[in-house]
């Protein structure tokens, strides 16, 4: 086994991993951080999305050893006790979440967008979320939620 050191949600972690261990397996099976989900394991569905040094990636096809020394943010990492992120508030209030399975990935993909583009157009939101699948909402409420969060964050 190889020793991997990384920062997850601000905390330095050290775990033992194999050559084919994925970042998703590190998060779920070793650190018990369960907001990133196992959906397809092929990089297609987006339920495993996390931020790696602030950039949106698929943790299911990210080799764990390639994130040595890097910083990972999951949905748990943007939730402060008693103080949720405007995106979380907007997804709750604007019905951007139904079954909830795609929600962690959706919110992180949205955060990755708003971090670099605080005033996205509807089309830019669609582009940013184009790799995150949802089977419940039909996406309209999700896009509404992201735009509402962007408005709230500007005011």
């Amino acid at each position: 086994m190889h020793t991997l050191e990384l920062t997850v949600n601000g905390q330095t972690c050290r775990v033992e991993v194999g050559l084919k261990t994925t970042l998703l397996e590190v998060l779920r099976d070793k650190l018990y951080i369960t907001s990133p989900k196992v959906g397809c394991n092929t990089g297609d569905c987006g339920t495993c999305s996390v931020l790696l040094d602030g950039v949106l990636v698929r943790s299911c096809i990210t080799n764990a050893l390639s994130v040595q020394g890097k910083s990972v943010t999951t949905l748990e990492g943007i939730t402060e006790p008693g103080d949720i992120h405007p995106l979380q508030k907007a997804f709750h209030e604007h019905y951007g979440s139904q079954c909830g399975f795609c929600t962690p990935g959706m919110i992180l993909a949205s955060k990755a967008l708003l971090d670099v583009n605080p005033s996205p157009t509807r089309d830019e939101v669609k582009q940013a979320l184009s790799g995150n699948l949802c089977r419940c909402t039909g996406y309209v409420k999700i896009i509404d939620s992201v735009l509402a969060a962007a408005d709230e964050m500007k005011s």
Binding site: T34, K37, L75, I84, Q88, H92, T103, P104
Partner: peptide, 22 residues
């Protein structure tokens, strides 16, 4: 407007699906 009873735990990632049970 009525929000979902489970909406807050969905958006914070606290919802435990079967695969999330450790």
């Amino acid at each position: 407007r009525v929000t979902r009873y489970d909406g807050m735990s969905h958006v914070t990632g606290e919802t435990k699906f079967v695969d999330d049970q450790v």
